[in-house]
């Protein structure tokens, strides 16, 4: 590989040193063939990437279409029994769903949130990084409480009656007491609340973020 191609490759990777970058800029300014090489390299990378992505997109579309209309073949007849059973189970499920709230909560949002370390319980001072937890919001329009939660291991799951309430969570702080291994949530201008760990049923969150 020539030095010029090396320069182009390193530029694409963002690994040119200051001296190499100056050399690159001088060639770009003074040598039209170098400019042509740079442009061709950029276009080849783009074309390769676009073609590969198009292949993948078409494959996903085809797989989606497969899943929507898949004809029944002779060999799949034995599955008809299972399908019938699934239909009956499905019907039962629908009846259950209608008569027995709550419905399956629907995932609204997930993010990994940094936690501040609660350094001093008495002074309420905290100024250090204390790791991170997964925060997941589900919407469950059938629940009675506006907000409930479960917290287990590294995941805090919040069930919201109204999914729009996720935006209010942007200003809620997560605090960790390293000595007691306890996690707290603290909305702005409100006292912090201790979260119970690994309970079977979602617990009400006694604040409005």
């Amino acid at each position: 590989m020539t030095d010029r191609q090396q320069l182009i490759r390193k530029h694409r990777q963002g690994t040119l040193t200051d001296a190499e970058y100056q050399e690159y800029l001088a060639l770009l300014r003074d040598d039209p063939t170098f400019q042509e090489d740079v442009e061709l390299d950029r276009m080849l990378t783009q074309v390769t990437r676009q073609d590969k992505n198009r292949l993948l997109w078409e494959a996903v579309q085809a797989a989606e279409a497969d899943a929507t209309v898949r004809p029944l073949s002779g060999g799949s007849r034995r599955w008809n029994t299972y399908a019938m059973a699934a239909c009956v189970a499905g019907l039962l499920g629908v009846v259950t769903w209608l008569l027995w709230p709550p419905a399956t909560p629907e995932l609204v949002r997930t993010e990994k949130r940094d936690v501040r370390l609660l350094l001093d319980e008495t002074t309420k001072g905290y100024d250090d990084y204390g790791g991170s937890v997964w925060l997941r919001w589900f919407e469950n329009s059938r629940q009675q409480e506006p907000q409930t939660y479960t917290f287990c291991r590294d995941t805090l799951t919040v069930y919201l009656k109204n999914s729009r309430d996720t935006t209010q969570w942007q200003s809620v702080q997560l605090l960790f007491n390293a000595e007691q291994r306890k996690l707290y949530v603290q909305p702005p201008n409100q006292p912090r609340r201790l979260l119970s760990e690994c309970l079977d049923t979602p617990q009400p969150l006694l604040f409005t973020p």
Binding site: L55, L56, E58, A59, V60, A62, A63, E64, D66, A67, T104, E106, L107
Partner: peptide, 28 residues
């Protein structure tokens, strides 16, 4: 190891087969 349309399709089907059940509980 995706090299052509056939291998991409097989991969997409496999991804769907594994993740569709997980998606069903999240995005019914």
């Amino acid at each position: 190891t995706l090299t052509d349309a056939a291998s991409a399709l097989a991969f997409a089907r496999q991804v769907k087969a594994i993740f569709d059940p997980l998606l069903d509980s999240r995005l019914p």
